[in-house]
Design a protein around this nucleic acid. Structure first.
Lengths: 198, 198, 198, 198
DNA sequence: TATGAATGAGCCTTCATTCAT
DNA sequence: TATGAATGAAGGCTCATTCAT
């Protein structure tokens, strides 16, 4: 792929992210995205075979970027508890600095459907959950964590982070670093081996 | 309002719920909803002034039904901890028996926007959070709960329940009753006054 | 026709006049007219076989009322010149006191068409012109008026009055009595036997 | 703008004129106009942002064409009386050769309203009146014309020309050149300084 | 590599009319 | 005498996509 190809595609993907984040999946037509990129509509058609193709590239790009930013932070932690905390902190840190990307990603994953009404990118949503599952199960095997249903916990952590985003979207003055520490504490208590006596 | 009016409106609202739950907000056109109800498109226009009007009635109907089913269970609990557990259990119980309604509700709340791109029903989403906030703060005042950021916890509980729904939607064999108990334990640990020594 | 019939029909006709005058022929739907009359749409359908039927009754009613108000004033004048002046004055006087009726009449006559695009009430517009033609030709026979094309003059007088209405509609502070006298003078000069030397 | 753009736009404008003139403003839907032009409905949407946009372009095109055809004839006349006569003659001459355009123009100006019910192009109707006003006032200043209300006279001349159009529309055998001379005489008599003795 | 032009399908809404009650 | 209910047709408009250049 030529340099110009790559640059154009990146530009269009960026415009799609911007548009979807700003006005939502539903109103983000190719015309709007083209307008955002200040190019003609057919340029998009030329570089992407489909609207779906474009959206898929957006999802891929954001997800891989996100993973790339998180991976080294996770691997630096020796314990499962440490990795769980790092997971929470790093995801919220990414969120804080890439809000439009994450909003766009969520919009697309939650809304883009095929002709039969099925969510096309539903599985992509599961990737971060799988990541978490691995961490949690390792912690349980190592005796760091108590015996919980790891799937429930993975879902809950994932959703908690989504909730932080929602909250931040509605109240931009929310301090995400503090929010992260609250969640770290919350999930430490929820996973710790030592239950408090009662 | 005449009997026939009430019946038709209920039928249309039900068809709208069914349609939105099945194929998502974005594809749920009046034509599809009318098709689902096996009536002509203009019957909807006759009974509702707008598509937005119809959606609003759907939101209202589901939310009030939901609240009504939850209220007595909450009020039966004397302690904040009990009310928190009851909140989790009753919401998941409602979910289990009214999945289409809740899916449709979420779809509409998360997607319906006005001409300026603002989510019209955003506030309706906040109602259950406010409910939770009250419970959590009461628990803190009474010394039942530790000193956490109540907003973070309220968001997290809300999101955890939504996560249960998502999980159940994707894997229908999920046992929501067990899921509920996992969450009850999780949030008991996360809120309890007695922190474990470390 | 029963009393109640007559009253209802009159009420509906009045509402139609009001509505057409207020928002124009194009937007004056049966629903709007019914709203103006504070009755249900089907009441109109019951009393008039058609929308066209209703409009026809409106035209008839306004035209006959107008003629009735003008006739005695014309017949009181012995000379053609007097009758021409009386015609101008009386039409503008009627206009001043029945603006909504006249506006509605004009809207309907100028806009209501059948399926083939033909103006249905075009002929009704010609009635006042015929009236004028008779006056002008009588004046020419009697030697009161110079030798002009009576059709041109009849059209011009008619249009001049319409112009007064338009002007008054746009600038309500226009004094129609003064306007009438200007027109009387104008058409006296234009019709008089004695041409000024030049 | 490309050649093809210009051509298509002109074609669509022409089709709109044809359609509006033939079946009136009210029935002139985009579908009908597209049918007249033998193109698909969405071609219109592609070249004009709106139905209103199209209508505006029609009004603009006809008015500027009309003005352009009249201007040199007016400026060739040294006296106000000459300009008034030239105004009458040239407008009727334009009418004779552009009847569909003028009919369409009038239909649109008299009927197109915004959402609040206001006639959108009302002001465009006033332009020819302003032109006339200038001529009449100049004639009065120069002592060529008697002391009349110039606004009344301007309206009356304008309406007289419209009357000629109406007449011609209904009776196509009307000789507009003769009609013009009748009006020239009429308004010469009506404006001349020398009143006939009486 | 880029794009202007065109299109058919579908969107929501309004409308005059019909019909059973 | 009145009307609530229903409907099909048509309205203007947006959309993703295709195609020739």
């Amino acid at each position: 792929m030529s340099f110009i190809q790559t640059a154009r595609r990146a530009q269009i993907i960026e415009a799609a992210i911007e548009t979807v984040a700003a006005i939502g999946y539903g109103q983000a037509s190719l015309a709007r995205i083209a307008g955002q990129a200040e190019i003609s509509k057919s340029v998009i058609s030329y570089h992407f075979s489909n609207k779906e193709d474009l959206l898929e590239k957006v999802v891929e790009q954001v997800l891989s970027d996100w993973n790339a930013s998180m991976r080294p932070l996770l691997e630096a932690e020796p314990t499962a508890a440490g990795r769980l905390a790092a997971y929470i902190r790093s995801r919220l840190a990414y969120l804080r600095e890439n809000r439009r990307r994450v909003v766009a990603l969520t919009e697309i994953i939650m809304n883009h459907r095929d002709a039969d009404g099925r969510l096309v990118f539903a599985e992509r949503d599961a990737e971060p959950v799988d990541e978490l599952l691995a961490i949690l199960r390792a912690g349980q095997s190592a005796g760091e964590f108590r015996a919980f249903d790891s799937m429930v916990l993975a879902m809950t952590v994932t959703q908690a982070l989504e909730g932080a985003m929602t909250r931040w979207a509605e109240q931009p003055e929310t301090d995400l670093a503090t929010y992260a520490e609250e969640l770290v504490t919350l999930f430490r208590l929820a996973t710790d081996t030592q239950e408090p006596e009662r």
